[in-house]
Design a protein around this nucleic acid. Sequence first.
DNA 1: TTTTGGCACTCTCGTGTCCAGAGTGCTAAA
DNA 2: TTTAGCACTCTGGACACGAGAGTGCCAAAA
Lengths: 360, 360
Amino acid sequence: MFSSAMLPAIPPQLNERAQHLLKILVERYIGEGLPVGSRALARDAGLNLSPATIRNVMSDLEELGLITAPHTSAGRMPTVTGYRLFVDTLLTVRPLQQSQVEQLWSHLETQDTPEELLETASRLLSEVTRLAGLVMVPRRESQIVRHFEFLPLSEQRILVILVTQEGEVMNKIITPSRPFSASELQSAANYLNATVVGKDLRTIREGLQRELQEAREKLQGEMIHAAEIAGLALAPDDAKRRRPFVLSGEMNLLDCAELASMEQVRGLFEAFQQREGIVQILDRCLETAGVKIFIGEEAGYRALDQCSVVTSAYSINGEIIGVLGVIGPTRMAYERVIPIVDITAKLLGAALNQKSQTPC
Amino acid sequence: MFSSAMLPAIPPQLNERAQHLLKILVERYIGEGLPVGSRALARDAGLNLSPATIRNVMSDLEELGLITAPHTSAGRMPTVTGYRLFVDTLLTVRPLQQSQVEQLWSHLETQDTPEELLETASRLLSEVTRLAGLVMVPRRESQIVRHFEFLPLSEQRILVILVTQEGEVMNKIITPSRPFSASELQSAANYLNATVVGKDLRTIREGLQRELQEAREKLQGEMIHAAEIAGLALAPDDAKRRRPFVLSGEMNLLDCAELASMEQVRGLFEAFQQREGIVQILDRCLETAGVKIFIGEEAGYRALDQCSVVTSAYSINGEIIGVLGVIGPTRMAYERVIPIVDITAKLLGAALNQKSQTPC
DNA sequence: TTTTGGCACTCTCGTGTCCAGAGTGCTAAA
DNA sequence: TTTAGCACTCTGGACACGAGAGTGCCAAAA
């Protein structure tokens, strides 16, 4: 159901009973946060087995690397592999109630700008899961342009304003190699608005190359300038790169006992600030739809060793344009978090879609 | 030199020697972070006095509420009043070297947009002081408008884009009570661009009221609509209110021993997220120029009880438009931090000024 | 063959005790 | 007014101790 990098086959040694006990153990550990002992497990399992029997099974599970004990005389807790098996094959998700879905939707629906939409989605994720919410900003490449505007700030500095189909406003300042007059700018803007509106950024950029070529051949000076300035305007800008995702509810993470040490917290929060590492993980989820889960070290990012990331891509008109999710302790309530992330991704896609559908 | 809410007169009991000892004690405490004992103080003071003598003076200082001991057999550390006296009358500031100032300026000067400028200023503050940097976004009221643009998104939703003199782009979506046609919007924009460009927001809004009144009397329908839509567009929007200051280097605060407990950290970071409380403090610094300091409880905000805030207003053309500063532990190196905040405020003002000076 | 009771063993954690170190306050002498 | 001396206090680390929880293993029971 939830695609993982490599779905590990259930070890043949692992009979039904062992699986069930593992499931109960993980559930209990997630609930209590304390290593689970044989007595407690015997009671919870509902199998009418004595602690001694349970101990044998636990010993097997430990041998298989699914659970581990912090020290000799403590109970057991799941390893990353244990969590993986749990999440992939043992988990029974608890789907959201219709009313909850509607409530989420009502919050998203009422947002005006796409930016607010992303922020709201992130906030909702964090509030509902009580973890840190995370929404990656949509890929700009696939956004459809609605309007261009060039505004001269000074001789050499031109303010470019670009409005997308969804009503998002991007702006940046470009400094072309030579001064442009107001009328030149106006005609460049007119040209662009006439020809490229309704296409997406990638298409526009590709088309521009071709037209620049053609214009050069025909010595159409004016066209060359328009294309030149547009090229600068459309160059992938790194300003946005500094804020590639919207994070919220980080504070929720301070509650969980896992991150008790200042070191841990510091590392995690620095990772949030650095952004690159997190973006790399999110990028890996852009390819396929559906919920993806990274547990602890699986993400391959030291700062997140004690954390899990649950993500889902969101799409507009069937095309994936971004990823959202939550970050929380490995010991999170997956059966609740997974459907929430899943639904939120779908709702965000729908909300974005709704905004861009409205005719101009 | 540094205006405080109420400059406390130096208590007459406090002779030169006591003052000197207080100064040394505070300096040493700021440096070491440990309560200062009589022996250490005797050595540092350079007065050739025995620890026993020092003890007598310390006892007096304690009686005056300037220092305090965490327990019987520990050294003394400054109280808030002690810090206050230190900062107001004993402190010898260490001015920045010219090269450092130039370095700061070179970072600010190269920023394109005002937004980047604020972020850079905040980052510089935090990096240079190793504390949390804080830059309040300029008051919008006094910003001069350069350009208006209305873009219909759908029947009822209009995207308003407003560019300020400094090249900052503000945008929001308004939903007027009745649909406006594209040509109506165009003429409204034309009207506004023709009449109000070059004025600041407050002036424009006031003028609008009057003109709306006149237009009504003369039954100028078109004017009424333009004014109506402009009114909506200029209404103070709360979108910006959610991000009223730019914060950076929060992580630096995790280093200081004062904030060892998770509780403290949590409270502080929640205050950063809430924003309101911090904004209130910053607002109090908007009135007068120069460096202001709030020590511990002086700010009147529980989450900041262990912290000091050092701020300075920044201005453009002599008019104060915002505040910046740093937040750090009460035990911060004031003599270094104060000049940094002071200079950065001046440089930020100059940089903003430079951007808006460039002719259109 | 599987399950169970019993038992010795181990590890944590909270408590209590003890001691060195640092610093104070007070008093009497310089 | 300053200083030396001394008794006193408080912290924090080291150590021991015991209760509690849980394990592993073995031999008996099912």
